[in-house]
């Protein structure tokens, strides 16, 4: 066991952890933070997406011990207009993927604002303003929604893009 310290949704946690425990299992099983979901447990579905020092990651592929000293934000620590927007735009049906979708969207909007290009960015230069639906689709491709609420998700993200920083 190794003692690690993370700042989880604003509060400092000191936990003993075995090196083979994923950040996702630490959150869900030890800390009872069950917003991040274990969909595939292999980095394919994005349901476990959390923010680590502001960057979106798949918590299932992260060894908790490697995130010693990090600031972790899960859906439990998010209070943002995007949550209302998901409701207004029908950005979910069953809701299972939603915590990951929202954490991913917040990370993605930060990347967009920072000028990071995507595979569909023309000439690699990110234009000012809101990301286009095409940009959002590409940038959110790591989050699957088996209910198929993609159109609502994209509209919800567009509604709040550029409205505020995290």
């Amino acid at each position: 066991m190794t003692e690690i310290q993370i700042k989880l949704n604003g509060s400092v946690e000191r936990i003993d952890v075995d090196p083979w425990v994923s950040l996702l299992d630490l959150l869900r099983e030890t800390l009872k933070i069950t917003g991040p979901k274990k969909g595939c447990d292999q980095g394919a579905c994005g349901a476990c997406t959390v923010l680590a020092d502001g960057r979106r990651i798949n918590a299932c592929l992260a060894l908790a011990v490697a995130y010693d000293g990090s600031e972790i934000t899960t859906i439990e620590g998010v209070s943002h207009p995007i949550q209302e927007a998901f409701i207004h735009r029908d950005g979910f049906q069953c809701g299972y993927c939603t915590p990951g979708q929202i954490c991913s969207a917040l990370g993605m909007l930060g990347e967009y604002q920072a000028g990071m290009p995507s595979a569909v960015t023309e000439a690699g230069e990110v234009p000012a303003g809101k990301p286009s639906p095409e940009e959002i689709r590409e940038r959110m491709s790591g989050n699957l929604c088996r209910c198929g609420a993609y159109n609502g998700i994209i509209m919800a993200i567009q509604d709040v893009a550029g409205t505020e920083n995290r």
């Binding site: 980095g43 979106r56 990651i57 595979a119 940038r139 491709s141 790591g142």
Partner: peptide, 19 residues
Amino acid sequence: YRVLSEALLSGASGQLRNM
């Protein structure tokens, strides 16, 4: 090195590329 930027961005997902 545009070919490199494009190759990286064509791979995996936003989350995985961050890791």
